[in-house]
């Protein structure tokens, strides 16, 4: 399995995800839509596993490889939210988001070689990256949901249930974000003797973590003013993107981060 096979697996997964999203609108039950979407995620996971075996290392080293996990986890987050809260549109949103990242990887393929620098050969590598990608996926999903609630054509005020769903997703996403940061700190201590060095990646990770933490603390006082809560979610997601790939282009981070790849 190598990168040239990706387009086939990506296309098959995309078809299943779209079919799942359509089934969510057409059928009454949760199972047909969830099963189709899970089928897409399973196909995607088969490619990731095959790539893992052929590379002889986890495909988590390059931005392109992290995009694979992001597509996978966004689809899983979409299915979980659909199964839990029965929002039909979430599968369409998560499918589109996953497919966008599949397309980016198809249009901008990266060379994936087997080398893994010594610092990345740690027991923390796989859990750290996968937990972060899960957090990004959940927080991406809640951002989409917030934008929908904020700008939907009906201009209807969000219901208590809708806001609770936002809060729950942020809480779980923030828990994953915290776990990712902690694992990074434990790994950093093993690798070079510091828990935290204010490397640009770490700085923006702290900003992202604080942004969502601020949301969690502000929400009880913003029961009527949902716009500020949504704005904070969108802003925090911008911080998240700066942390994920934005620092690769940020002038202040050039030559100053060991996390630029």
């Amino acid at each position: 399995m190598d990168w040239s096979h990706f387009i086939f697996y990506g296309a098959a997964a995309a078809i299943c995800w779209i079919a799942g999203a359509v089934a969510a609108y057409r059928s009454e039950g949760v199972r047909p839509a969830a099963a189709l979407s899970l089928c897409g995620s399973a196909i995607f996971l088969v490619f990731i596993t095959g790539l893992w075996i052929s590379l002889e290392r986890p495909p988590m080293r390059t931005v392109g490889e992290t995009r694979l996990w992001y597509s996978f986890f966004v689809s899983i987050a979409g299915i979980a939210v659909f199964a839990r809260w029965r929002y039909r549109w979430i599968l369409l949103f998560s499918s589109v988001m996953s497919i966008v990242f599949v397309c980016i990887n198809v249009l901008k393929p990266e060379i994936h070689d087997k080398t893994l620098m010594p610092a990345l050969q740690s027991v923390w590598f796989i859990p750290h990256v996968s937990v972060y990608m899960m957090a990004y996926a959940l927080l991406g999903a809640v951002t989409l949901f917030a934008v929908y609630l904020w700008l939907r054509p009906s201009h209807r005020m969000p219901s208590e249930r809708e806001m609770q769903m936002c809060d729950s997703l942020v809480r779980i996403g923030w828990a994953f974000l915290s776990a990712g940061m902690v694992m990074g700190a434990l790994w950093a201590k093993e690798a070079w003797g510091d828990w935290w060095t204010w490397d640009p990646k770490e700085t923006w990770a702290a900003a992202t973590w604080l942004g969502y933490l601020l949301y969690l603390h502000l929400r009880p006082g913003l029961r009527r003013d949902s716009s500020l809560a949504f704005a904070l979610l969108v802003f925090s997601f911008l911080l998240l993107q700066m942390c994920w790939y934005g620092i690769n282009y940020l002038p202040s981070a050039q030559g100053a981060s060991v996390h630029i790849y």
Binding site: S168, V170, R171, S178, V182
Partner: peptide
Amino acid sequence: WYFLVDAALWLMLVSGALMFLSGGVK
């Protein structure tokens, strides 16, 4: 201060797991 920080980080991992287990429900 190694052991204090180490213990606090593991505690934070546990709290993340508890938050996940409670399903994010307030």
